[in-house]
Amino acid sequence: MTGKERILAKLRGEATDSLPLMPITMMFAADLAGVRYIDYARDHRVLADAQVAVADYFGFDHVSAISDPAREASDLGAAVEWFDNQPPAIVESRALLDEKSKLAGLRLPDLAAPGRMRDRIEAVRLLAERTGATRVVEGWVEGPCAMGADLRGLNTLMLDFFDDGPFVEALFDFTVRMEVEFARAQVEAGATLIGVGDAAASLIGPKLYTQHVLTSEQRLIAAIHALGVPVRLHICGNTKRIVEGMGLTGAEIIDLDFPTPLGHARRAMRETQVLLGNIDPVRALRDGTPESVEAALAECFEQAGAAYICGAGCEVPRGTPYANLEAMARFARSRR
């Protein structure tokens, strides 16, 4: 099977020749390709070269256009700080929506115009041309809670949940409308799957998640399904208390970070829900040994059951020994 066939078969609940392998690589990929991260995040050709290189080297079943959470915010006019060799960051102290009234004046970015969203679309196009026949090409958008935090400021959004629920609803409505269009452009460019990153959602409890985030994630994911592609929902951090809700989003892949044991997630979701992850990226993957990596993945597989895709809890950290990632690949290829 090709990587693409393997992943898509797994999502259909069909037998595969081995476990699909879909770890997130960003800075690790840039380092492997010998490029600065600022170039990786700014130039789709650099990103595509690095993604193909890392996928070739370790035998990944996918390539991804994920790079940083600041693409949409950049194009909307948010203040972003750039670093030479790490991801750009949104400057929260100068949040674009520092005043709630500014939301009404916010317009969806022009995806045909030059910008960071356009650059990701072109990355998807290039990846699809170069490796889309045999690998899943993953586009990427921000989830409603993460995007809301990008625009409003994470600290402020957390208080908005209690101070002004209707504003949060309006903010999430804007983010969903924008991300649907961003996903559409990436699918048209050749994405075979869309990743949705909604890290900020791990900071809230089940009540607020159900009340404010879940329905927005469901709307976003349903709209991406209408484009004809499956969805990977990735929420970094501790999601133990919202994981049941995550299982109701409709995402084909629930990609969990290490604080949430896959056994816990499996008990909260249907048996056929594909789970991805979730060894501790730092303690197990970067600082472990090939043997401990395989043992940690075996535990994940045991807890998740057959509907499982190999990966780390979050991005493969810079500095991870190649031998440890090779051990992950070896584990995936030796199980089915």
Binding site: N155, M158, L159, F161, I204, G205, L208, R241
Partner: peptide, 14 residues
């Protein structure tokens, strides 16, 4: 004990 989350903590801090 995961009865409070970040928003509740920030409210209490405020």
């Amino acid at each position: 004990c995961e009865e409070y989350f970040v928003p509740e903590m920030l409210l209490s801090a405020r």
